[in-house]
Nucleic acid binder design. Structure first.
Length: 208
DNA sequence: GACCAGGCACATC
DNA sequence: GATGTGCATGGT
């Protein structure tokens, strides 16, 4: 994929804080819609911890409206801000001074941050070696008969991390390339019946 | 007009 | 534990 597409320069964002906001806003949402929401926040001068911590939740919802699910996402952004200020006084560097295991566990306790969002934050905002698994990862690699759609997030993550060097830049590029390829070639949800690789047994075992 | 997009929490059985 | 549902905009 790298030979075909080249470097993807992920995550698209100017600062770790912007990357974190984008990670929450892009949940089940087209990135172009997220860009509009981020643009609104930028214009309002709110794309920084202090600004987002102070804004009213309903006003925030209005600004991020284009990203969809705007009420629930406003709540999730505010939940992260509460977490950031409660534990780290609003200082991202302080948050990223924790080790991978500590910070991942803490992030997952924030309502609205699940495994993919947590790992996106860790990898792309914090430069931790956390492999990100998303819908495209499942779709593409299940079509290649390398894994099943039914495998859990962590089973899939473990599979990739067990077979790849622990390398932040590799994880960064790999996930970005998966998304790039998925957007261009794997847009439909139903399994590709024509895929010649479907007969290959799943190396992770059956019945999961 | 239907379908989809870089998930997640929560209710119900 | 598994299965189902709400959340919502904008592009194809």
């Amino acid at each position: 994929m790298f030979e075909a597409y080249g470097p993807q320069h992920w995550w698209p964002g100017d600062s770790p804080f912007e990357i974190i906001m984008g990670a929450i806003l892009t949940q089940n949402t087209n990135w172009t819609n997220v860009e509009k929401a981020i643009s609104n926040l930028k214009e309002a001068g709110l794309l920084n911890p202090r600004g987002l911590n102070h804004i009213d939740k309903d006003q925030l919802a209005e600004l991020i409206r284009p990203s969809g699910y705007f009420n629930i996402k406003a709540k999730r952004l505010k939940a992260f801000m509460a977490f950031l200020f409660r534990h780290f006084k609003g200082d991202l560097d302080a948050m990223f001074s924790l080790n991978l295991t500590e910070i991942r566990k803490a992030l997952l306790e924030v309502k609205g941050i699940g495994p993919e969002t947590a790992d996106s934050i860790l990898l792309y905002a914090g430069n931790y070696p956390a492999f990100v698994v998303d819908a495209y990862t499942k779709r593409i690699f299940s079509r290649l008969a390398i894994l099943h759609e039914e495998h859990t997030y962590h089973q899939i993550q473990d599979y990739f991390m067990a077979h790849l060097e622990e390398d932040v830049q590799l994880y960064n590029e790999y996930h970005a390339l998966i998304v790039r390829h998925g957007k261009e070639h794997c847009k439909t949800k139903p399994l590709c019946k024509e895929c010649p690789l479907l007969d290959i047994p799943c190396p992770m075992g059956q019945g999961m």
